[in-house]
Design a protein around this nucleic acid. Structure first.
Lengths: 241, 241
DNA sequence: CAGTGGTCTAGACCACTTT
DNA sequence: AAGTGGTCTAGACCACTGA
């Protein structure tokens, strides 16, 4: 098994299991076969299988519990919130956002969008405009850009209610896209008139500008998100380990 | 060995090796004993030792190279730069900062500093004011606050030249403090007159405000750093995995 | 070539969960 | 009690480095 593929066996096994999850072979929340069974099926030792499973767990694709079993991670609101939503109030506590869709449209990608999403310019994208409310006050104005090819049935149903909660949960449930990683560029900017109208702040208020590109378990670029966060009463938390 | 300490053996071994590095038993850049020798000395199997070493490597406390050996990580400028310095230019490339010390003082910690550094209010701290220059332009104004108890010989030599480069390298070389983790709160703020003077920007320019608390390998709070980044030509990069 | 870390295996035993 | 994942061991073999 090792000759044609130079990668270590445990990496190959990880890739096989990753593929089974991504392809929907094993569904969200479903239990994987027990370790001895899986190891036998794949023709590797228990140790090698466990090493592959440990890597999948580190990427949050599976969850393992002693005595219970191994399960494909359910992309619940809480899980996505804890992993990707980093806004805290001034006491350092996570906040629970309410979300309102302010606009949805479809059109050709501009240069910036095409570059970030790795599309050819002009390819179709969906755009979602949202505002997010913390503790009664609108604090985030953002635009989400999605490759239309990955979200074929997004425009027609057009269900703002579904998009209002954590959108990564919707991606997973409705489109089978499992979000695992993001890259962000942060900067500061002054609120435009449009920002001021949405956020209820004076024009020129300093805002935290978050430009996020998100990847799924198959390595595809899934989303470009540009958020403007009013930091008068909130902070953006980052850990470096 | 397992009874009195409920943690797994490999965690206990990790703690022992961590302690040897922190205490200066093994110095920066020095090679650890070979695996079979270390395993025998500690009375554990090779597999358990390797698991502990893998965790130390993940925390960047050691570096392992096949055929060469295992070495205590040298906190070089490049290493600290890659791990903790996240400023990029608009092309996404890391920049190399020049640094100028604009002030050093010692005094009692105020409430904010004491809370962040886990000191009792009034305990002595050192304060360093710096500006950092990218591509000829001053882009960061920052104040660093250090517990004086951890940096006893900082004030008397007062060597701006040493503090001008990556300061984490200096911490390690001069004070034996190995930096491994940071927590940050990000927000946006308007440049004050003082900021404008240092950064050469108009008063009111939106700045990225970074409040960072840093921990060392022994789990101590080592530094509070408040940075103001002019993001007109630079970005702050964050990865979520 | 000797010495190092990296991979892979087989098996014993432990700890937890559920029935 | 049965079934699951978690720990620990011993040993064979591979891959890389430097003298």
């Amino acid at each position: 098994m090792r000759r044609p593929d130079a990668r270590p066996l445990y990496v190959q096994v990880e890739a096989i299991l990753n593929e089974r999850i991504v392809s929907g072979d094993w569904k969200s929340g479903q239990a994987l076969p027990a370790e001895p069974e899986l190891a036998a099926e794949l023709g590797v030792s228990a140790g090698t299988l466990r090493r592959a499973l440990a890597r999948l767990e580190q990427r949050h694709l599976i969850e393992r519990r002693q005595g219970r079993g191994t399960y494909v991670t359910q992309q619940t609101s809480e899980q996505a919130l804890g992993q990707f939503f980093r806004v805290r109030n001034l006491a350092g506590q996570p906040v629970e956002p309410d979300t309102f869709i302010t606009g949805v449209s479809t059109g050709p990608a501009n240069e910036e969008e095409a570059a970030r999403l790795r599309l050819t310019p002009g390819e179709a994208v969906h755009r979602i405009e949202r505002s997010r409310i913390f503790e009664g006050e609108p604090r985030i104005a953002e635009r989400i850009t999605l490759p239309a090819a990955l979200f074929p049935n997004l425009t027609l149903p057009l269900a703002p209610a579904q998009l209002a909660t954590e959108i990564y949960v919707h991606y997973r449930n409705a489109h089978g896209i499992i979000v695992v990683q993001s890259e962000e560029n942060l900067s500061a900017t002054a609120a435009t008139e449009a920002d001021a109208a949405v956020l209820g702040c004076p024009v020129g208020t300093p805002l935290l500008l978050i430009e996020r590109v998100t990847f799924d378990a198959a390595g595809r670029v899934v989303e470009l998100r540009v958020s403007r966060l009013d930091t008068r009463a909130h902070r953006y938390a980052v850990e470096i380990a």
